[in-house]
Design a protein around this nucleic acid. Structure first.
Lengths: 213, 213
DNA sequence: ATAGTAGGTTACTTCAAGTAGGAAACGGTA
DNA sequence: TACCGTTTCCTACTTGAAGTAACCTACTAT
């Protein structure tokens, strides 16, 4: 045995990589393996092996298994936020802004089915405070966006009402996204319309009633 | 040292207990400890110690750590289902039925804040397929209930529309319940009204449109 | 009283998270 | 070219918790 002291003579020697690149590579692999096996069933050794590097490197860069997960979630969060924010600019009415944001959201969950599924299923006391906090941050950003939208549309609503409405919308989206990724026969636009029909027109009636007297 | 070979002389000897009672006791303790520390941070040794029994007993009765968690979730699921079903009977209109169900739901989350929080945060790839499946079953029951309600009210809706509506409602409730338990100044009735305003009146408009032509 | 069973224990194995301490590649500088 | 400091990376360990093997003891019925 003994795997020849070091491959070949001088070619095929150890591959070094700048830290930033390695981190990105690690996150990409980790996201895939987590999504494939589930967080709990994935060992750091396995991720390390697939990256082609040894375990202490993962700890060097991410501190812990949970740290690695948090980094993965954060990446999704940032991308989702940026995309949504971008998609909303230039909308003429709040209704149109909301619709565009919803479509973007469902398109994103479609393109990243596995990762999104991981995220939603990853949430947990199971995993530790940091990962939960990061997951909550994803929702928090959506919530804030919605509150901003609603408050522009219903200036006389109380903060409590705005919060509740935003939370409801976020919950509706989250749950429908799970349903949505199970249905290949439904488009992102249709999913967005389901939400609109159910929540927005409800809200709209509410708003009209407010403006009646 | 050496904690006297065995307490007292013959009083205070080992406490036996019928299996059903012991199981119930274990679940009660486990639910509390999981809620307190989080699932991942809780060791079977700790639960065993608090129960006053040794670890293999837990494995004897629940098979695994995840099995114990599943048992806890199942208990909540059954109670929530029974209570909701009971609260709905005798309602005159679908609207009233929905409202009663929602109030019961929020009251339940209020009474079991810690456990409910655990449940919602416990969901996870982190934990394994069985626990996830059990958690999904909780939602599935709510979803089916809503589908039944909706289909009575909108007989011409497609199954896909009914499903989507039910999923949205379940997601809205789930998320609002998290918000709700953070707000001591909100009653279960108010929380239910938030949902009604946002979703039901939206649906109602949808229904009226359907019946117009 | 005694056999059979349900409830119980101690003491282990195994596996994965996390760490200590050092080696080897690279960039610069003389 | 030989040396130095920095960064990347590794082997080999410790720790801790899940899960198990093997055995013991209180109760129950005849």
């Amino acid at each position: 045995m003994s795997v020849v002291t070091s491959a070949g003579s001088k070619t095929e020697r150890r591959r070094r990589m700048p830290r930033a690149d390695r981190e990105q590579q690690m996150m990409t692999v980790a996201e895939a393996v987590f999504a494939e096996r589930g967080y709990a069933a994935t060992s750091m050794d396995e991720i390390a092996e697939r990256v082609g590097v040894s375990k202490p490197m993962l700890y060097e860069y991410f501190g812990s298994k949970e740290g690695l997960l948090v980094a993965c979630i954060r990446q999704v969060r940032v991308e989702l936020r940026d995309r949504t924010a971008e998609s909303v600019i230039g909308a003429d009415t709040p209704e149109e802004a909301l619709r565009r944001g919803l479509v973007t959201f469902f398109k994103y969950t479609d393109e990243h089915r596995r990762s999104w599924d991981l995220l939603l299923r990853t949430e947990a006391a199971v995993v530790g405070p940091a990962a939960v906090a990061e997951m909550e941050a994803v929702r928090q950003e959506q919530t804030q966006l919605h509150i901003a939208l609603f408050s522009a549309y219903m200036p006389d609503a109380t903060p409590l009402e705005l919060e509740a409405a935003a939370e409801i919308l976020v919950g509706a989206c989250e749950r429908l996204s799970v349903w949505y990724v199970r249905h290949d026969d439904v488009t992102a636009e249709e999913a967005a319309e389901h939400i609109m029909r159910m929540t927005w027109f409800g809200l709209k009636g509410e708003v009209e009633a407010r403006h009646k007297h």
